[in-house]
């Protein structure tokens, strides 16, 4: 069977120009921010694919494009073999889209405060005109809450419980793929563990596939089967989890792993990384990482490296071995 998600040469531009009149008066050119730049990757069925990166890496944008909240500027996305941009059969697209759900970062903003929990959970079904009798109760129990909670409102729940409700809502659609955008970054550590465990259990029970978007390497290391590292909208390394954490190939990945605080790093003296993430409207020429890269050579400033198979994964670096 083919992979569940196939992303090919994905590009997404945002127009971040000043308003038209200001542009004319101040003689400024149009400003285009390329949030996603020629990204390709596949997600195998029933696996967890993690996208990691710092702010401006385009990880959330990719997630939104895959669930259909944003259209891509260029490139193709096939989910379950269907490309929504080129599929003539509308019914097929609709059926495919039901199977993609999303869990958001902020458990407070992702539930409508005026809706009862039961209605919130049933929305994937009712929004499409279906009946959802008893579904919410069943799902609430499945995510570790009480079926009687259907008549409560979101404000009666803690952050962790709300994220469980979001998970229940995603499950209501009987999804194949769940895009999780920083699902635990708003939660406390002890609660985060509960939610991550629940997600692992549900994945086994329902045969789910996760696209896991996170900036937190420790969570990625715990959850992911495959990890893709993004920098400034470009995929720069992709490898199975063990390979990536044991033997990172790209200098940026190395730096990220080195910079992340370690629980057993008592008194560790880290050589702090050089520089900051560049302005994404004017990205560096060649390899986007070259101004901060400790091993950059002349070629890196002129030519953009493509992803190439090296070892167990793919990496976009001329100097990686």
């Amino acid at each position: 069977m083919s992979d569940l998600v196939e992303v090919k040469n994905l590009v997404r531009d945002f127009d971040v120009s000043a308003p038209w009149l200001n542009r004319v008066l101040e003689r400024k050119p149009k400003a285009i921010l390329q949030a996603v730049s020629n990204v390709s990757f596949n997600i195998a069925r029933n696996s967890v694919y993690a996208l990691v990166g710092e702010s401006g890496s385009g990880k959330s944008t990719i997630g939104k494009i895959i669930v259909g909240l944003l259209p891509p500027t260029a490139g193709t996305i096939k989910i379950d073999g269907i490309d929504p941009a080129h599929e003539p059969d509308k019914a097929k697209i609709a059926a495919m889209q039901v199977g993609i759900q999303m869990i958001f970062q902020d458990p407070y903003a992702s539930l409508n405060p005026r809706w009862k929990v039961g209605d919130i959970i049933a929305e994937p079904v009712t929004a499409r005109g279906g009946k959802a009798d008893g579904l919410a109760q069943k799902l609430l129990e499945q995510v570790g809450l009480s079926g009687a909670d259907v008549n409560k409102y979101p404000h009666e729940f803690s952050g962790g419980q709300r994220q469980r409700i979001c998970i229940a809502r995603a499950l209501a659609a009987e999804p194949k793929l769940i895009v999780c955008d920083e699902p635990t970054s708003a939660l406390d550590v002890s609660v985060q563990a509960q939610v991550l465990n629940l997600m692992s259990d549900l994945r086994e029970e329902f045969g789910l596939t996760y696209l896991f978007i996170s900036h937190d390497l420790t969570i990625v290391q715990h959850m992911a089967d495959t990890v893709g590292v993004l920098y400034l909208g470009r995929l720069i390394e992709e490898a199975p989890r063990e390979a990536l954490f044991a033997d990172p190939k790209h200098p940026y990945t190395k730096m990220l792993l080195e910079a992340a605080p370690k629980l057993d790093g008592f008194g560790r003296e880290v050589e702090p990384p050089k520089g900051e993430i560049p302005d994404p409207i004017h990205p560096p020429t060649g390899c986007a990482y070259h101004p901060r890269c400790p091993i950059a050579v002349d070629r890196c400033t002129k030519e953009r490296p493509e992803m190439e198979q090296k070892g167990k994964g793919r990496v976009a670096c001329f100097l990686a071995v």
Partner: peptide, 26 residues
Amino acid sequence: GKEYVQAARLNGRGAGGIMIRHILPN
């Protein structure tokens, strides 16, 4: 801009439904 509206969008609720059922009460 809140995520519950995005969730409703990706669940196939139309603009009218989102305006009346989700945004109006808030």
